[in-house]
Write a protein that binds this DNA or RNA. Structure first.
Lengths: 232, 232
DNA sequence: ACCTTACGGATTGCATACAATTTGTCAACC
DNA sequence: GGTTGACAAATTGTATGCAATCCGTAAGGT
């Protein structure tokens, strides 16, 4: 069945936001919304018709998703979705927390104090103005700055990769994920304070607590969004 | 050079050993051996001629290397190598150690004791027969089993990814990396003993020590192999 | 003289055609 | 009747051609 109710909503103007990116988002969307389930095979030509592109961007999208750990590629045997339910999302946050805790530890005593002041000011302003729409920008910037201050670009790269992955999930289930930014501002302030106090373990613990709460919110949103998401 | 006719006439089966894998290994080899340096742009068509393939497998190879964090892709701006010297290799091992320590912690009290006995027997047999040629198989199997026993497939997947990355490095610099397996057997036995004793922190510490030694060996081999490898 | 803008070359991104491999099916054989 | 072999359909991997985009250059206007 390929009734394609959503295939390139803007009609033939899908090139506007790029071909591969559309396929990546579309496949991710379908997986999170339960249109596909873990273990399902992805036929390249069907996906190409589904998104109104050729097989080339589909193949590249599958390679990108394989790099993100969302699909699995088998030589000459096609691609299959990996399961992606609450359990998998918690696993993702577990790895992310591991990476970011270590980055926070390493960033202590290395991060530029001026950056801390700058981020702190931004958070306070955000809390006062209640500008929730742009909160995610400051959120990602904070995590990015801490990761970069770890002195390990490889670690920072992995953190960025997981940030992108979580961002992709957020974009799909964003309808029920608007409220978390206000609550996470307090967590962010706590992390910055511990960094200013040069307490590596306390800062890492604050980061861990922050991500634990973020994981709870994300899992709740996923369960609310993926109506039919049932894992094997 | 490439005066190879490549007679791409549809009738000629000049495919050497063709494909994406060759390009991936070739680019990795060139980067580790210093033929390319961090920051160098990769022109798709040049790489295609260099490896006697078309642009398609080159593009897919670049996507795969981007997933491994070896190159960086920029929209409509080509791909550039990321630096890969001793510092970067140590960063890789730092992340790998972080992941495998956590997996070891989680695997304690979860791993099947029978697997431990089986791995232990294999290691003892390996130590007695001095069969160094097949040591890396048991090495990878041990790490894989521990990762799988963590109960977090996402974590296990990241560990496998880093195992593949390190394996790629080993294949390039293997000439000077033959001796490490005998030394690492003792480390492996130590890890298994701590797992059998159900001591999460001790097992994680043993894994950390093992990977620290592996990192030293790998960095030494890279410095010996990459004659002209100089980072910015 | 400096800045703006139009053009040319080169490179990436996508679409399509072909070759190679895998998988499913059916018939012949043990 | 079960198993194995080959054949056919489908799918993946690769090659090539074309369109879109970006960078460098040079000409023209203020």
């Amino acid at each position: 069945m390929k009734s394609a109710p959503q295939s390139s909503a803007p009609g033939s103007n899908a090139r506007a936001s790029g071909g591969k990116a559309v396929v990546v988002r579309g496949l991710m969307h379908g997986l999170l919304r339960g249109h596909w389930r873990g273990g399902d095979r992805i036929a390249e030509i069907q996906a190409a018709e589904r998104f109104d592109v050729s097989r080339t961007p589909v193949r590249e999208a599958l390679l990108e998703l394989a790099g993100l750990g969302v699909v699995e590629l088998r030589r000459n045997c096609g691609a299959v979705f990996l399961p992606f339910g609450p359990k998998e999302l918690r696993d993702i946050y577990a790895v992310r927390s591991l990476l970011e805790e270590e980055a926070t530890r390493l960033a202590t005593n290395r991060i530029d104090p001026e950056l801390l002041v700058q981020l702190h000011g931004g958070l306070v302003m955000l809390r006062e103005t209640q500008a929730e729409d742009s909160g995610w920008r400051l959120d990602r910037r904070l995590h990015s700055v801490i990761a970069a201050a770890s002195g390990n670009p490889r670690l920072a790269g992995e953190i960025a990769r997981y940030g992108d992955l979580v961002q992709s999930v957020r974009e799909v289930v964003s309808d029920t994920l608007r409220h978390i930014h206000s609550t996470s501002t307090a967590d962010h302030l706590r992390i910055l304070e511990e960094l200013q106090a040069c307490s590596p373990e306390a800062a890492a613990a604050a980061m861990k607590a922050h991500l634990a709460q973020a994981a709870d919110s994300a899992v709740a949103a996923l369960e609310a969004a993926g109506t039919g998401t049932r894992e094997v």
